[in-house]
Write a protein that binds this DNA or RNA. Sequence first.
RNA 1: GUGGGCGUAGCUCAACGGUAGAGCAUCAGUUUGUGGUACUGACGGUUGCGGGUUCGAAUCCCGUCGCUCACCCCA
Length: 423
Amino acid sequence: MNIQTLKGFRDFLPKEARKRQYVINTFKKVFESYGFEPLETPALEYEELLMGKYGEEGDKLMYRFEDNGKRRVALRYDQTVPTARVVAQYQNDLPMPFKRYQIQPVWRAENTQKGRYREFLQCDIDIIGISTPLADAELLTAVASSIKKLGFKKFKILINDRNVFKQLTDRGTVEVKNLPDVIRTVDKIKKIGREGVLNELGNKGYSTEVASYILQSLETQKVTPLIAEIFKYMEDMGVDSTCYEFYPLLARGLDYYTGIIFEVEIEGYTAGSVCGGGRYDNLIGMFAGKKVPATGCAFGFDRIMEAMEEANVFPANLETTKVLVTVFSEELANKSLEIASRLRAQDINTEIYLEPSATMEKQLKYADAKNVPYVVIVGEQEIANNTVILKDMQKREQKQISIEELVQDLLPARQGDSETSSE
RNA sequence: GUGGGCGUAGCUCAACGGUAGAGCAUCAGUUUGUGGUACUGACGGUUGCGGGUUCGAAUCCCGUCGCUCACCCCA
């Protein structure tokens, strides 16, 4: 038997899982502060529902199989298509605009590489059923709030209008059917540089003159009226103007965007954007049989985690257990259990050492290994005068206090200590 | 799908043709109510798997499986 995880699939041990939970909870809090509501959809969908929605490549990378009832099924490949299904299936039950967030794993059978896995968490917010620029502005504002709330000081949302590419076809510089390909190439500019883009366009049959004309006309593009309107709203919502800018070279690979497109870059984090999205008015309605405008984005959860690690913005204490109550001996265990119960009654996360005969050394080492910030010791002397010893593991200090004082001391001192609580 | 790198103890790695080792981790001690940093000891490997070359293979060769990085692609 192979004791290992599947290629591209990962375990998250408590230390890592706690951080992930913290990020998820932070996202949820911000999203909900803007009125986004949670949506969950099944891991499996009918194969035919997903097939053909992500292009040839997508079909190849989709996990597909036959279930025990001989149904052709496929694992969720993104969260947008299932959402489109939901919008079609519950047309009369969803208030419009439908603002939802969805934080669930998706599966793609790609070849793995750094930062790319076969099972990964997608973290989406979308505003569905309304096409106003205000909706785009609110989405961008919620994105800025999220990044800020996670602790990033310096970041930038690069924003473009997909329509700036339209002029290339309007003027006949690029054929309509070739536009997505050209866009894909331009999108690589940050990675392969200006020269690289020109070369690649050259390889695709564009002359040197045309290729540099394409780049130049994009580089000199002025803010479009749509973007200007969105920027005005963002300003009204108090978004710091240094956090976003018009960037006409931004392309994004997808060809389904119809309006604004954007990406978020964290200063100092070079592995790429941590969030991307835009308006896509023709996608959500595909199952409903009518046009349903939508604007939304996805946070790259793994990159967010990596960027947070590098920027060192995780709170110091994400440990879930606040205090370990040691057990002095078999005879005195009842006292420890009683104290633990009293602490838990006050919502203080309390752990008891589960081997009553263990030495104090062993119990303290356990607390240490688990990074539990406080330890309570209840021995004969303490019981005699109705006190306990509260030991601060970080400061290496301890004091003898009454049980009432113990409860008081361990209650959250400041708000923020309980930030991580969740189900 | 294409190309590079790597598989040795739970983890990180050494040994690179001559009896498989270290650090960390784990467990037990260093006497009787106190941790992260000390000392002692124990546990732990058919060197990914299969074949070949050789007196002798962790080491060289072939195959295979796995991992990893990059390209393609990325809704």
